[in-house]
Design a protein around this nucleic acid. Sequence first.
DNA 1: AATGCTGACAACCGCCAGATT
DNA 2: CAATCTGGCGGTTGTCAGCAT
Length: 300
Amino acid sequence: MGRSPCCEKAHTNKGAWTKEEDQRLIDYIRAHGEGCWRSLPKSAGLLRCGKSCRLRWINYLRPDLKRGNFTEEEDELIIKLHSLLGNKWSLIAGRLPGRTDNEIKNYWNTHIKRKLIGRGVDPQTHRPLKEIAANAVASHLDFRNSSPPSLPVAGISLVNQINNNNTTTTHNCATLKPKTESVEDANCTSSGTTTEEEPPQLPQRQKQQRQEARDQSVLNLELSVGLGPFQAESSRLSPGNTAESKLQQVPFQLFNGTVQSAMVAQAVCLCCHLGFQSNELCRNCQNSNGFFRYCRPLDS
DNA sequence: AATGCTGACAACCGCCAGATT
DNA sequence: CAATCTGGCGGTTGTCAGCAT
């Protein structure tokens, strides 16, 4: 299909921005505000593509940007948000005031990936690297076409399935959204690469995946995750309360009757899961009906 | 001092969704 | 309802500084 370019490339500058260009852009936006990026370059006297102006403003010139190194707390929050949202950098950035999606994306690729690998955690799935290798061997497990748990939170869906299959667990969940597996979908599709075989009728499947991803985004936006309101709480972060440490062996019965166990996340309320709350059930994860979005084991 | 390598990050590109015509 | 426009997103590339050889 194709579409016309957003600007006449022959008459636009590319590459690094000069101080003068920056100043023109700042002055223009101060005077006229953001918006109408297409016409902005001409109005501001810039030989730049509107998109380029927008990116320069959002990623570099905006006055509310927080420059400087990421803190340890920000690191952990990014990791936890990524485990929930996947490569949804804009959503992650939305939870980190003063940080941009581009900045977080770069930081992820250059620092956090390595950090997680150093911890023995796969940066894409947030599963222990050892477990991934083991799963390759143990792929014969019958989950009746359901997605295997690939993320800490997705583990909850396994707990749900286990409950649905009338096998015993030590968990007692108040309310759980049954659609948690789409977290994984969002995670896989957003990266543009999938590790699983693509089914036929790709466009239809892609549409479905996008819809699921969108639904998940809506769900995720409901979650009370963010540095802001919980900043004071985050100081309570302890190594024993990390997402990784919430993994536990959960026994379940296969359809042939044998009992196996798998590493899944403990079911905890989201704030506890993210380390912003201590062990008590918290109001942050309570929805308007008085139910908790996530729960924790009664025996914890 | 010259060269090559690597990491960090700014910027670009292609695509998509929603709005508008 | 289709075509087009626009803003936005995520992946990728280009550039440069710092370091090692």
